[in-house]
């Protein structure tokens, strides 16, 4: 594995270098953990010497199957659960001593929405706003209104939470993270319970917030979600960090190895012959399609060759190795199966 362990913006760190991030300087990181470990009563180790480094300004995907320790990690970061050992910093401040100074600048969605069912959405947000030590009550109405508008709940502001749908509840929880100017958002499975439209909106919102300079730390068990939103990724598996780094470097891990070209055509045999003539390897014939490793060949030349040979080309696509392949390689398993 290449890269400089001391630099968080550097290469993907894998389990081969367990102490690498542990010696990393805090640098310009929004979240740094060193050997963070949580052993629950009964001996179950939920998180095992976690060394995370989340660069400031990144959209950081915290990926792992359900039960891999993501939520426990987030609870430790926010001071809800005391680690058995290890230390951590948020926004450059050692925790948990800095809780009261740092958390007002952090918005958090932890393990789904939780509100008072007999209060309206607006009253619920006012309640959480009142709980903080430094929010200005004079601007509360305005900030709450803006947050509700941002998640598309302005029309339902006065409706009781009890009457909210699952998607509305999730939106309200996201609105609660946007009540003030935040330097860091910690979002635990933010698209849970949302329909495809809502999921798209949340992704858009995350990008928008990140564009304003806020670091977003988003946990998910869905690879596609992380792939769509994130600039950096960390992968958890059974309480351990398997890898972390910029998402582009995850892609490069398999680059060159498996970029394939796929040709849709009814004339599969002819197409395969053309590909073979061009010297492509690993040719596979499918149902009305043929694929091969692209190698150094230019896709447009392949297209031209196919057309020149009279092959009916209905579609042509370059397939880069999916992140899923990379992650499956790292974790040894698919993502929705681990317990």
């Amino acid at each position: 594995m290449s890269g400089m362990p001391g630099h968080t913006g550097g290469a993907v760190l894998t389990a081969d270098e367990p102490s690498a991030a542990g010696t990393a300087s805090a640098g310009d990181c929004s979240i740094v953990t060193r050997g963070l470990t949580k052993r629950f009563q009964g001996g179950q180790v939920a998180v095992n010497s976690l060394d995370l480094a989340v660069p400031r300004g990144s959209v950081f995907g915290f990926l792992g199957p359900n039960g891999s320790g993501k939520t426990t990690t987030i609870r430790m970061l926010l001071g809800l659960v005391a680690p058995t050992s290890g230390s951590w910093e948020l926004l450059g401040t050692p925790m948990p001593a800095g809780v009261s100074g740092v958390l007002p600048r952090v918005g958090a969605l932890v393990e789904g929405p939780a509100f008072y069912p007999y209060l309206s959405g607006e009253a619920n947000l006012r309640r959480y706003d009142a709980a903080g030590p430094s929010a200005d009550p004079r601007t509360a109405g305005m900030r709450i209104g803006l947050a509700l508008e941002r998640v598309g709940l302005a029309a339902a502001a006065r409706k009781r939470y009890r009457a909210y749908s699952l998607g509305m509840r999730q939106r309200l929880a996201i609105a609660a993270t946007l009540l003030g100017p935040r330097e860091l958002l910690i979002l635990d499975e933010p698209t849970n319970g949302l329909d495809p439209q809502g999921t798209r909106e949340v992704r858009g919102l995350v990008k928008e917030i990140a564009a304003e300079g806020t670091t977003v730390f988003v946990s998910s068990h869905l690879l596609a979600e992380v792939e769509h939103m994130c600039s950096h990724v960390a992968v958890m598996r059974t309480g351990r960090l398997v890898a972390q780094g910029p998402i582009a470097e995850f892609r490069e891990l398999r680059a060159g190895e498996a970029v394939r070209i796929r040709v849709e055509s009814p004339d599969t045999a002819e197409a395969a012959a053309v590909l073979a003539a061009l010297g492509l390897d690993e040719i596979r014939l499918g149902d009305a399609e043929v694929s091969a490793e692209l190698g150094a060949e230019a896709p447009e030349r392949i297209c031209a060759a196919l057309v020149a040979d009279g092959v009916a080309v209905r579609g042509l696509a370059v397939q880069r190795p999916s992140l899923e392949d990379v992650f499956v390689g790292l974790t040894g398993k698919g993502f929705d199966v681990d317990g």
Binding site: R75, L78, G79, L80, V99, S100, L103, P104, V106, A108, V110, E111, G112, A114, F115, Y116, P117, R127, Y128, D129, A131, G132, P133, A176
Partner: peptide, 11 residues
Amino acid sequence: IGTLRYLLVAP
């Protein structure tokens, strides 16, 4: 009902 965690995170 889980509101405790959000109150503490407020903080």
